[in-house]
């Protein structure tokens, strides 16, 4: 177990290092001079030179690379070219909002997706199955911003149940939940569509196995067979998919945050793109990579919790 964790940690470190290297060079090969981009055409040569020194752009590339890697490790992710504040500070300020949204949608996706997936598999080729299949296929056909716009149109503008613009800045718990509701429903239903599909196909595979027939034969209640015996064995692919689709969830959260005007990483990255804030973009890529690498690690470790037969080697 320890050896396995160490191995996975090693792989995570390699992935992180590789992506950081790619990120560093992508940002460096961007056309245009960052100093000029910040100060504009009217800036004097001396001012440009001074800013380049401040941004650390005056030293050779390999030195910048070493400093960049070292900086990432100790939490020095550079200074935002636009706001002048440390990148990591700006990211940490909005990170809770994005995590809140992501985790809420993940929970919603699991709570809605797994029961429907199981039900659909058990009633295969019956009406509930067809409905679940069409529904989930429809759910994953929605670009996140399209569903967000439609939800906003219907629930906020037509029915006025929810605020059109989230405040997201503290407030009472009830306010926060109201702000969170529509964005989380938007992402959660898309997540539920993915989870329904993978739960269904995993359950179908398990339901055909011999031990299920044996359980039937010895007179075990159908509900116990399905929920205790089959679901547990079907969960591994489900966890894998949840881990994999977290990347999609992160991408979709960008779109959701824009539509609902919610603070978070999504609004931060779009702002950084519009203002050509390269250090901020670099920091955003680092944080996204960190999140994805960590999720993959947790996904791998979860397998052992679900299925004790899995030996970590």
């Amino acid at each position: 177990m320890t050896a396995f964790i160490l191995k996975r940690l090693g792989f995570a470190a390699i992935t992180l290092f590789a992506v950081l290297t790619i990120v560093f060079f992508i940002v460096r090969v961007l056309p245009g001079d960052p100093a000029l981009a910040i100060l504009g055409d009217q800036a004097s040569q001396a001012a440009l030179e001074a800013l380049r020194v401040r941004l650390g752009l005056d030293v050779p590339l390999y030195q910048q690379y070493v400093e960049f890697l070292g900086g990432v490790l100790v939490g020095d992710w550079g200074i935002s070219m636009v706001s002048g504040r440390p990148v990591i500070e700006e990211i940490i300020k909005v990170l809770p909002a994005t995590l809140e949204l992501t985790i809420a949608s993940l929970i919603l996706g699991v709570v809605v997706g797994i029961p429907i997936g199981v039900w659909s598999a058990v009633r295969r080729n019956k009406l509930p199955d067809y409905l679940a299949r069409i529904g989930s296929l429809l759910g994953l056909s929605f670009p996140a911003f399209v569903s967000a716009v439609l939800l906003l149109l219907f629930f906020s503008i037509q029915l006025r149940w929810f605020p059109v613009i989230s405040s997201g800045q503290g407030g009472s718990l009830a306010d926060r939940l109201r702000d969170l509701a529509l964005p989380a429903i938007n992402l959660g239903l898309i997540m539920a569509a993915y989870i329904t599909r993978v739960t269904r196909s995993a359950m179908l595979e398990v339901l055909n196995q011999d031990y299920v027939r044996t359980a039937h034969a010895k007179g075990l209640a159908f509900a116990i067979i399905v929920w205790r015996h089959c679901l547990r064995n079907a969960l591994i692919p489900v966890v894998t998919v949840v881990g994999l689709y977290l990347g999609i969830l992160i991408g979709n959260s960008v779109l959701t945050e824009i539509v609902f005007n919610r603070p978070g990483l999504g609004k931060l990255i779009v702002g950084a793109l519009n203002q050509r804030d390269y250090t901020m973009l670099q920091g955003m890529m680092v944080i996204y990579t960190l999140i994805v690498v960590m999720v993959n690690l947790v996904t791998d470790l979860t397998y052992g919790l679900i299925d004790p037969r899995i030996k970590y080697s």
């Binding site: 590789a18 961007l30 990347g247 979709n252 960008v254 990255i269 973009l281």
Partner: peptide
């Protein structure tokens, strides 16, 4: 291994950065 590193990155974010560049 290289493909896995690329897969680790959310595709919309990757697309966003490439197009912005």
């Amino acid at each position: 291994q290289v493909m896995d590193v690329l897969l680790a990155f959310p595709s919309l974010i990757l697309g966003l950065i490439v197009v912005a560049m």
